[in-house]
Write a protein that binds this DNA or RNA. Structure first.
Lengths: 200, 200
DNA sequence: TTTACTCTACCTACTAGTAGGAAGGCAAAA
DNA sequence: TTTTGCCTTCCTACTAGTAGGTAGAGTAAA
């Protein structure tokens, strides 16, 4: 009982890794077909058009991300730990090359020429991620864990930019370690010193 | 006496804007030909292959960037002003949509599937930019203008990631103002308070 | 007369997408 | 129980159009 994954899931999995590698125009139905050993036409049966395939793909990605972030929050970890788990997750993805870039970040760079239905979903993911980061920062401030220079929404945007920029640098330099080297100090800076002046 | 630009310059100009919009796989010789009113084959006369075209394009981009950054330094502006001019430049490019993204940042996201000759040049630009930022930060520290949490090289990497991430966010949200909203506080944070505790 | 440039015309390989059929599972009707 | 028909899935074979790239001829200036 090995691969229980349905064909359409396999298609989405391969498409995801191809998009992460080369973006929307960086893959074709033929690539996917070859990778999972079926014919092009079979893919069109599951996903009539490329725009629809990628739309479903992004929808799934958003759902997975939302579920992951929600479970992070529900595990009652402190806001500081939530942030740490978040960047540890990406650090692991980049280090083992399992997913060395965010699908939506990749697609966002091509925003201008994306089918509208895809562009809308990519933007939605950015909004969702910004909202999650904002709420985590806000909670951290209320618990006295963080001290922010700016309002939580702005600080969240700054943090998100750091994360995406760090992914890009890691890729551009071919140094996976750059991701954490850039992001970790950015997060450390948010931590408020406690009353004894020590660092948690 | 209007367009003195040579055909090959026109080709590179159009190709640049097409790459900024959609990346390496987001444009074709046909697109360029249509845009400047010549035939595809004429482009092949100037640039035999696509990889060569983009290589020359990136070489030119790097030269322009180097010249710009060098002149910034030679205008004897303070390190703080140099940084400010740098982000003001990008802010203007993004706001007037004349160049809403860095060519090399765009290509870096597709690093994994770029022709090697192009990938090498993109990486070189990242190294050059990191080196320039490092030297500016270093000079700022020596002049007592900046106070850094980390070593200049690391701080430069963090700053570069912020800039690229901010470009991506501005594009993803369709809000050009996001760029400066993210980058400005990041730079303000570097400034050291002077002996009177005021902000320069 | 060479050189630089652009053209028409063409090539092969690949693009997303379509048409129509074969194979098998499933369920209701005979 | 068998038959009928539907549904899903995948297939072969195809379309029109686009990709990067080539061959060779025309043209104009040095």
């Amino acid at each position: 009982m090995k691969s229980m994954a349905s064909t359409s899931d396999k298609i989405l999995d391969i498409a995801k890794s191809l998009i992460v590698a080369g973006g929307y125009n960086g893959f074709s139905y033929a690539d996917i077909a070859a990778a999972i050993g079926i014919r092009k036409a079979s893919i069109h049966h599951h996903f009539p058009t490329k725009a629809e395939l990628v739309s479903v793909l992004v929808d799934r990605y958003i759902k997975q991300a939302e579920a992951g972030l929600r479970s992070l929050r529900e595990q009652a970890a402190s806001p500081a730990d939530q942030l740490q788990f978040y960047i540890d997750f990406w650090n692991a993805c980049i280090r083992d090359a399992s997913q060395p870039f965010c699908v939506c970040a990749m697609l966002a760079s091509e925003m201008q020429m994306l089918p509208e239905e895809v562009a809308l979903r990519v933007r939605a993911h950015f909004q969702g991620l910004a909202a999650w980061l904002t709420s985590v920062l806000q909670a951290g401030v209320e618990q006295g864990l963080f001290r922010l220079d700016k309002r939580p929404e702005e600080q969240a945007q700054m943090l998100m930019a750091s994360v995406h920029g760090a992914m890009l640098s890691a890729r551009a330099f071919g140094e996976p370690g750059l991701f954490i080297a850039v992001v970790a100090p950015e997060i450390a800076r948010l931590r408020a010193p406690d009353r004894y002046g020590t660092v948690r």
